Computed example of a mutant assay.
Amino acid sequence: MKPVRTLIVDDSASMRATLKRMLSADPEIEVVGMAPEPYAARDMIKALNPDVLTLDVEMPGMDGLSFLERIMRLRPMPVVMCSTLTARGAQVTIEALRLGAVDYVTKPSGTPEDIERDAELLCEKVKAAARSVARAGPQRLPMQPKGSAGARGDTLIAIGSSTGGVEALFSILPSMPEDSPPILVVQHMPATFTRSFAERLNSECRVQVVEATNGAAVQPGTVYIAPGGLMHMELSGGARGHIKLRPGDPVGGHRPAVDVLFRSVAPLGPSVVGVILTGMGADGATGLLAMRQAGARTLAQSRETCVVWGMPRAAKEAGAVEKEVGLSAMPEAILKACRAETSKVGSV
């Protein structure tokens, strides 16, 4: 197996050296070059043809976002963004993921143990990016008409996503009608990022998008993004109940976990639609299976349209998926599932 040829782009010489040391420690990764700014990176991409780019979000000359937008328009390739855990870093990283970056890592810092953990995560994400499908930003999908979820007043939608999920959600949610059933979303993301993510999505959507808060009443026409980091998100009190944020250990390495959300809505049976989108790993597979066994409709993003076909694959192999749907058809399929009777799910 050939090593993943990686180009590092960062304006800090010390950070370039740190990233090179981390990546070079993995025998499955080869650092083929390092660039201090985007113009040098442009020439090195042409000369070296790397498999993956790691890109600093903020650099002099041409900023990382402008460079990323140009890359994804002219030569789509897997890009992993290097960000800081600040409000500004969160906003820029969310925009980078919307534009088509595969994933992001936070810049290494802290104790030796922290840096070792950062190194493992960086290598994992670079190798996953090499296996991903690069895409030039979200699709502009047709607006679904008001009333397309049907007349039932007790329906709810639960969505889980990870790598590639930001771009997928920026494709799906702006297409949803303003009277959509409530939508609960777990997207794997750090605590400092989810509020910026919700605010950026809200600016694009007819539905209202908010970062979920404990005790918030679940209302139609609203999307609730699980806050990252410290709590799991559950539904309590039925389809028109409220959000419950609870502490707990990571489940499958994730907090919040898709599985926790899905298991909490499974008792709603045919009143809930479960959707598993692009992402690494297997989070959501067992929860989606519980939903299906309880009579819920369950959809998974198709392999061809996933950035990383990990979570949908695990759900499919577990027998949790009734139908695989391409990204461009997902909004219509979700709303059709909201209208469907349990016996008609297979026709979604």
Rank of each mutant, 00 (worst) to 15 (best):
Glu322Val: 09
Gly160Glu: 04
Glu332Thr: 05
Ala119Asn: 04
Pro190Ser: 01
Leu289Met: 06
Tyr104Trp: 05
Val273Gly: 12
Trp309Tyr: 15
Ser161Gly: 07
Ala129Arg: 08
Met22Gln: 14
Ala168Glu: 02
Gln219Ile: 04
Leu99Lys: 10
Ser162His: 05
Ala266Trp: 01
Ala329Lys: 05
Val210Lys: 07
Phe170Cys: 11
Leu7Ala: 05
Leu327Glu: 13
Ile172Ser: 13
Glu204Ser: 11
Tyr224Phe: 10
Val102Lys: 07
Lys336Pro: 00
Ala119Ile: 03
Ala128Phe: 01
Ser302Cys: 12
Val92Leu: 14
Gly248Glu: 09
Pro76Gly: 06
Phe170Thr: 01
Val126Leu: 06
Pro50Asn: 01
Asn214Asp: 15
Ala320Tyr: 00
Met44Tyr: 10
Ile29Met: 05
Gly274Ala: 09
Val308Asp: 14
Val57Ser: 05
Asp103Ile: 00
Leu55Trp: 09
Leu335Asn: 07
Gln91Leu: 03
Ser302Tyr: 00
Arg21Thr: 15
Thr111Phe: 14
Ser66Pro: 04
Asp259Leu: 04
Gly310Thr: 02
Leu235Cys: 07
Met59Trp: 01
Leu74Val: 13
Ser162Tyr: 04
Glu120Asp: 10
Gly326Leu: 05
Met189His: 14
Lys316Gly: 13
Pro142Tyr: 02
Pro78Asn: 04
Val308Thr: 08
Gly346Tyr: 06
